[in-house]
Amino acid sequence: MKRIYVNEEWCLGCHLCEYQCAFANSGINDMVKALKGKTIHPRIQVEGGNSISFAVNCRHCSDARCIKGCISGALSRDKDGVVVIDTEKCVGCFTCILSCPYGAIMPSSDHSVVQKCQLCMDNQMGEPACVKGCPNRAIVYEERI
């Protein structure tokens, strides 16, 4: 399946992907209204500082520990292989945060459930907004075997 991959050497550390992610998942059409003056809770996180930086988000593992350990069955894999969360079922126990080896799943803004990257298949974008918005191709959306 197509996944998001990181080209660490190209990352500028500009955090634009985080803003694109927050905007894409805000449900608001106007970027200024969606983001201005707000603390963002993106599903992608840029690590690092001046010399090295890179973005981390869900790897959509084929052997996903988060799914196996979820106490409510809120995490599952959809027909395209995307690891998705059903926030109706999630009870916010954070067992998936304990389980994910990459630290790629996180509490939602009010901490009542978790949120994770779903490759923008759950919003209006239809393709990962972070990848589209990255100015230096430091994250790409492609098939790798």
Binding site: E8, E47, F54, R59, Y102, G103, I145
Partner: peptide
């Protein structure tokens, strides 16, 4: 804090760039 940055570049490359 827990972070990918703490791993070697090679491990990171596999974590974030390797087929899963």
């Amino acid at each position: 804090r827990p972070q990918e940055m703490a791993f070697s570049r090679a491990v990171r490359k596999d974590d974030l760039g390797g087929a899963k």
